[in-house]
Each structure stands twice: as structure tokens, then as C-alpha cells.
């Protein structure tokens, strides 16, 4: 299984563990991810102005160069997935904007690339059954709450990722790893996103609701695929539950995957968490006691 692969900025900086755990897992699973040459930032948010196509330039350039490498481009980060897939939709369906953007990047790209999320690769190409068979360290007993946020699900007609009101791909994934899935109603609610930059911790309200809804239902870990969700949910627990206190760690789905595949702990990259996942994972025997946390 070969794909071109777009890491995105955050995975090369604050969310290194997301990428390292994913790449290591992909290798073990026989999924070949070939990094795009000369990729650039997708812009982190899809532009909602129709009178300005400039913000589409960067993602469109990425798509055009990915198209030269193959037919499918894989992303890990929810935001990159959202921006690239929506841009691709514009390039496929909106002739005016397509021409404008193509003229600027000197390409003739027509949206004939398929942007897929790594979760979709695991589900559709590898198969969750096959994934379950590859598990070396079953995470049985780990009560894990999936958290989708917005960027994977909406707009549903463009992304067609999962049922926008009742998604289940993360649940199926977690089940395959042997987790006990904790369903909770806030899994599709927004974490506050970039409002995190606003002074006064405005985004922490929604994030706290998400964490609380998972925690109250017995979740011991929250699983996401978005660095910004990870940050917002994690930071919202500062103080109240305290560092290493009763908080619920928020981790990337690929980190759980790497653990379940029995990969060395140095690929996990659990640095910089407010609520460290280490103690929890050690307590269930999923991580050795010397691991860095």
C-alpha cells in the first residue's frame, strides 16, 4: 500500500509524537508513506471568503505536486485533512476559482487527487480486522473516549468521512486495538479551536465540557487526531485536576496504535502534556516503567 504523505507544520514541531508514532506504525503495518517533496503549510484553516482565493494557493500547490506522485495523499492531522480535502473539492467543482488558482501556481490541477486520512487507510485499505490481528499489546481494559471535534466531520458532504452526527470510525479503531470504547455526547462538539489564542481562556469552556463528558462516563484517556484539540482539551484541565492529578490524558490515535503494536516507546513522544499519559499507560501495563513521560 503506497501513498504520498503530507505531514503539516505541527507534526514537525509540537506534535512530533503524532508523526513518529504514525510513521513507525505504518512501517510495521506495511503501509508505505512517501513524504511529499517541498510541501508547505496548508494554512491550518479553510478560508471561508469566496471573494479571495489566495489562501487556496498553498494547499492547491501541495495537491498539484501530490498528484504528480500518485493518486492518493494521506494526512494525519485533522486540520490538514480538512483544508486539503476542501481545497481539492474547490479545484474539482468550482471552475472559476480553479482557473484563478491554477493561473497563479502555473498548474493545471483539476482536483483529481484523493485526499485520505490515515484512519481511512487503516479502515479501508488495511482493514480493522487485519489491524486487530496485528496487535501485540492488547489495550484491553483501557477505557478510551474518542474525540472527533469538527475538522474530520464537517462539512459532511465534502469530506464524506463518517456519519457527522454519529461517527464511529474512531470507535471501531479503538475496538480493534482492544480498548473499551467510552461513548460520550461531546465527541462531535467543538473544542474551541483557535479561539484558544483569545485572552481569557475563552476556549477552555467548550474544552472542559468535552473532557467532563468523557471523564464522567469513565474514560481514562481521550483519543484525537487533531493537535489543536489535543492542546485545548489538555490545557483546559490545568489547575482543576492538576498536573498528574485526576485529569484525563489526551493522546493521538497513532500513539495508542504504536503502543498496541508493541513499538518502542521512543516513537511515542509524550513530551509536553499537561496531563501526562505515562502513569496511566504504565498502570495498565501498556508501557514499561522506565519510559519517559
Amino acid at each position: 500500500m503506497g501513498y504520498s504523505y503530507f505531514p503539516g507544520c505541527t507534526l514537525r514541531a509540537k506534535a512530533r509524537g503524532f508523526e513518529s508514532s504514525a510513521l513507525a506504525s505504518a512501517r510495521v503495518l506495511g503501509i508505505h508513506l512517501e513524504e511529499l517533496a517541498n510541501w508547505q503549510c496548508c494554512g491550518a484553516t479553510f478560508p471561508l471568503q469566496v471573494d479571495n482565493s489566495f489562501p487556496l494557493v498553498s494547499p492547491a500547490r501541495t495537491l498539484a505536486s501530490a498528484r504528480r506522485m500518485g493518486e492518493r495523499l494521506v494526512t494525519l492531522c485533522s486540520a490538514c485533512y480538512n483544508v486539503l480535502k476542501r481545497t481539492n473539492h474547490v479545484m474539482r467543482t468550482d471552475a472559476d476559482r480553479r482557473d484563478k488558482v491554477n493561473a497563479f501556481i502555473e498548474e493545471d490541477y483539476r482536483g483529481d487527487l484523493e485526499v485520505v486520512h490515515f484512519l481511512e487507510v487503516l479502515r479501508d485499505d488495511l482493514g480493522f480486522d487485519a489491524l486487530a490481528r496485528s496487535v501485540k499489546v492488547p489495550l484491553s481494559g483501557l477505557a478510551a473516549a474518542p474525540y472527533y471535534g469538527c475538522l474530520l466531520l464537517r462539512p459532511a458532504d465534502e469530506l464524506a468521512f463518517d456519519d457527522p452526527e454519529a461517527p464511529h470510525i474512531l470507535e471501531d479503531f479503538l475496538s480493534a486495538l482492544g480498548c473499551r470504547v467510552v461513548d460520550h455526547p461531546y465527541k462531535i462538539e467543538c473544542c474551541g479551536s483557535y479561539v484558544a489564542l483569545e485572552p481569557g481562556e475563552l476556549a477552555s469552556g467548550p474544552s472542559r465540557m468535552v473532557v467532563e463528558s468523557a471523564r464522567a462516563r469513565g474514560a481514562r484517556v481521550i483519543v484525537t487526531s487533531c493537535p489543536l484539540c489535543q492542546y485545548n482539551l489538555d490545557v483546559s484541565q490545568q489547575g482543576a485536576h492538576g498536573r498528574n492529578g485526576a485529569g484525563v490524558p489526551v493522546i493521538y490515535f497513532t500513539q495508542l496504535l504504536a503502543i498496541a503494536l508493541g513499538l518502542p516507546e521512543d516513537v511515542l513522544g509524550f513530551e509536553g502534556h499537561v496531563i501526562s499519559p505515562g502513569p496511566l499507560l504504565r498502570s495498565i501495563g501498556a508501557m514499561g516503567s522506565e519510559a519517559t513521560a
Partner: peptide, 10 residues
């Protein structure tokens, strides 16, 4: 601490 994604988006 904020991820690059937050800064770019914000």
C-alpha cells in the same frame, strides 16, 4: 506551548 496549527489558524 500552543501547537503551530493554533498560531497559524488564529
Amino acid at each position: 506551548n500552543a501547537p503551530e496549527q493554533a498560531l497559524v489558524a488564529g
